[in-house]
Nucleic acid binder design. Structure first.
Lengths: 116, 116
DNA sequence: ACCACTGTACAGTAGATAGTACACAGTTGT
DNA sequence: ACAACTGTGTACTATCTACTGTACAGTGGT
């Protein structure tokens, strides 16, 4: 919920890859100084595009990494805006569901997706 | 999608209420100058809280008015961040659904909501 | 004629977001 | 010993967001 350990996570993943701060910064197109501060959570997480580059370079799910950064991929708000009432209602209902119920819902959606 | 006619909508609704620009501005707690520019789409739509006050004062659905403003209520991103993968997947699937399918999905969710 | 009201033009601003450049200290390899 | 790394402290900065205050011109009523 709070982006308190975003930086720590990035650092851990980067170190697991044995890549230096500077090289990683170059790879994702930011300055090493900035990356240093972000990794120590001295600066807040970077913008959406940069976080997505992190995810790509570190083999992480972009949506999860964005969540850790306290953000969401901007295509999702865009989808909500297509059908604001329905989507808002869905999400608010889903937020009160148990894990079991979420799984049921997922399965239902999966079924609908399959070509009839 | 683009917030091009947000202002025009606000102006139309305000005029339908027969309330002056200044009075409406006071009511929602912004300056009349700002409201003037917003209504003529010379300035982009205001922030989330202000749009919600517009909705309240004009009897509009907040999620719809926010959508017209190119925004989403901040509780929705927060919900997505609780279960980023599931919610992102759900939304991206839902974005490809027909209206019929959305209705079916809504009914399914309604059923789940009912106290067992 | 005057006053109060209508909307608008002009000129700003405080705070947040997403970064940058430069310089430096400590560690490692040869 | 010194070159080439490693990460970090300091000091900015540009752009965006979400507004404000003052002043003014046009319209309507008395």
């Amino acid at each position: 919920m709070n982006p308190k350990n975003f930086g720590a996570k990035i650092r851990a993943l980067r170190e697991a890859q044995q890549i230096s701060l500077r090289k990683f910064a170059d790879k994702v197109g930011i300055s090493s100084t900035y990356l240093s501060k972000v990794e120590r959570d001295e600066f807040p997480p970077p913008g959406e595009e940069t976080v997505k580059k992190f995810a790509l370079a570190l083999n992480q799910n972009p949506d999860e990494l964005l969540a850790l950064a306290g953000k969401v991929s901007s295509d999702l708000p865009a989808i909500i805006q297509q059908r604001p009432r329905e989507m808002a209602s869905f999400l608010r209902t889903a937020s009160e569901m148990s894990n079991d119920e979420i799984v049921k819902l997922q399965k239902f959606v999966e079924k609908m997706k399959r070509p009839t």
